[in-house]
Amino acid sequence: MAINVLIVDDSKIMRTMILKTLQMTGIPMGEIFQAGNGREGLEALERNWIDLAIVDINMPVMNGEEMIDHMRGNPEMQDMPVVVVSTEGSETRIARLEEKGVVFVHKPFEAETIRDTILDLLKLEADDE
């Protein structure tokens, strides 16, 4: 089954890198939506069926942590799998994010890390063919 993914990052080039990485994972992709900040990300979530959100932390307008707080407070989004892809290095802040039920991937990332994280999070089988 193909999954719909939302990529939220204020860097267009980083969104493209994540998009290309997703396309290389072998995971069947449906629609891939993009947003430049947390506010736009929430709007995309309200308008579309999305199975997985990949979210940066440091963004203007609304940062990733605020976006995740809004999601966890909304019954329609509170259980959505979220992967945070960020340069964040503070173990204190990472632990706080993980308490909100997100999985953390550090930038710069390897494609295999993104693939394995998504497979694990969505409980999908790897397709190495």
């Binding site: 440091n58 203007p60 340069t87 964040e88 290095g89 503070s90 173990e91 204190t92 802040r93 710069p108």
Partner: peptide, 25 residues
């Protein structure tokens, strides 16, 4: 984005991994 990643990795390396920093755009 390159500078963002450099700064994000530099700060815990010199300020400690338990320290929280806010990085501007």
């Amino acid at each position: 984005e390159t500078l963002n990643v450099i700064c994000g990795n530099l700060l815990p390396a010199i300020g400690g991994k338990d320290t929280v920093f806010d990085i501007h755009s």
